[in-house]
């Protein structure tokens, strides 16, 4: 198993690591048993994600996909961010080994979870916009 140079770059120098105080939305996906947890923080102004930070417990691919996904939604509208797919994240990283594809799925879900939380805080039902975010138990890991 070998990681692409892009994955290694985002792993070695992850972008947007940290937390946002007074975030407008926080999403956490994964669990410690599977070995991956991603937590994303977003700041939203006029429907645009002005700031995004993440914290991740996980392998090299988990950290790299978190980093790349946050880069890809920074400055984007909520709608555009919701369109981000795990495939796009993988492509941006020049691919992932097959056993690591689930890390990119987790990154996509973490963004959706943060946006979902943003809607919920505003008193809006997130499901029509975000859809259902599957539980980690449903990922088929165990």
């Amino acid at each position: 198993m070998a990681y692409s140079e892009k994955v290694m770059d985002h792993f070695a120098n992850p972008r947007n690591v940290g937390e946002i105080e007074n975030a407008d939305g926080i999403g956490e996906v994964g669990n410690s048993k599977c070995g991956d947890i991603m937590k994303m923080y977003i700041k939203v102004e006029n429907d645009v994600i002005t700031e995004v930070k993440f914290k991740t417990f996980g392998c090299g691919a988990a950290i790299a996909t978190s980093s790349m996904a946050t880069e890809m939604i920074k400055g984007k509208s909520i709608n555009d961010a919701l369109k981000l797919t795990n495939k796009a994240v993988m492509e941006a990283l020049d691919g992932l080994p097959p056993v690591k594809v689930h890390c990119s799925v987790l990154a996509e879900q973490a963004i959706k979870a943060a946006i979902s939380d943003y809607y919920t805080r505003k008193g809006i039902d997130p499901e029509p916009f975000v859809g259902k975010i599957p539980d980690c138990d449903e990922c088929g890991c165990h």
Partner: peptide, 20 residues
């Protein structure tokens, strides 16, 4: 795995029992 990759970036070859 993250630990291992970072050790490798420092020139240390090690291994892990992590799933990854």
């Amino acid at each position: 795995e993250s630990l291992l990759l970072r050790l490798d970036l420092c020139g240390i070859s090690a291994s892990s029992g992590s799933a990854c």
